[in-house]
Amino acid sequence: MSKFITILEGLDRRWIFLAMAISVAGPILFIGITGKTLPETPTPTARAVYKEIEALSPGTPVLISFDFDPASGGELTPMATSLVHQCAARGLRMVFIALWPLGPQLIDETIKRVILADYPNLKEGVDYVNLGFQSGNESVMKVMLTDFAKAFPITKNGVAVGDVVALKGIQRVDNFPLLITISAGYPGAKEWIQYVISSSGGKIKMVTGCTGVQTPGLYPYYPVQLNGLLGAIKGAAEYESLVNSSLAPKDSSAAVPAKYLEAQRRMGPQLGAHLLMIALIILGNIAFFAQRNSKVRATS
């Protein structure tokens, strides 16, 4: 026993890294081979996101801001896919923007993955438009409050926004009844709330999907300033299961494409990682108490 404690006390962090790699890789391989995912029970915050989008009538414009980059893509891409999937199925007019420089490419990838693949009848510039990246962080948001076209004068493809059918009737950001942000940090959901939602006098509703680290910081804004919240992969998996179950054809048993199961597939590795963390914390405490007892004994 004492040998075990000695090993624990001097445990090289590389063993922990190896254990983490195994506990994550195991479920990835298992799910990859079997295709099985764990069931999800949606929590109220995820249900709220689904309900807010479902409440909009077809043709309503929604502003979708991709405020993340490929680094956090692993955590945020699945929810971006599901959000665009629901909006496209609902027939909403999707206006994509990015306040992070690498956001426009992620928008293009999502459009390609969801809209071009499964909703080919939706027309670019009419049913959806990618306005690309604009630098300036909060100042872009402030400009949008008074003049949307000034904040985003051209689309990513260089077309003047005045000529874009999808932006008909959009003068200011509060002409969008719903703002969807996918956020990995600064500028992100918090800045949208502080600069746009609080200045719009309740005219715009906002739902957001964010990284796990950001989630605790956004709960204080829910449900008044923030109408729905998807926290990390867990939130994405809950929402994804909601969207999939509502969009599944009633008369068919066709399997859901893997791209619409990405979040639920990632819950397996998350389970492995969380269980390892709990085990590590328990082991760490065993070592701590053993060390303390031996000190007490030595003193007495």
């Binding site: 890294f17 983490m20 990682a273 590590l280 760490g284 405490n285």
Partner: peptide, 19 residues
């Protein structure tokens, strides 16, 4: 680089979460 966080969180939890 982002994925490294999972490893660092584990080692930080092992060291810091003491009762």
């Amino acid at each position: 680089m982002f994925a490294l966080l999972a490893f660092y969180v584990a080692s930080a939890a092992f060291r810091a979460f003491r009762a």
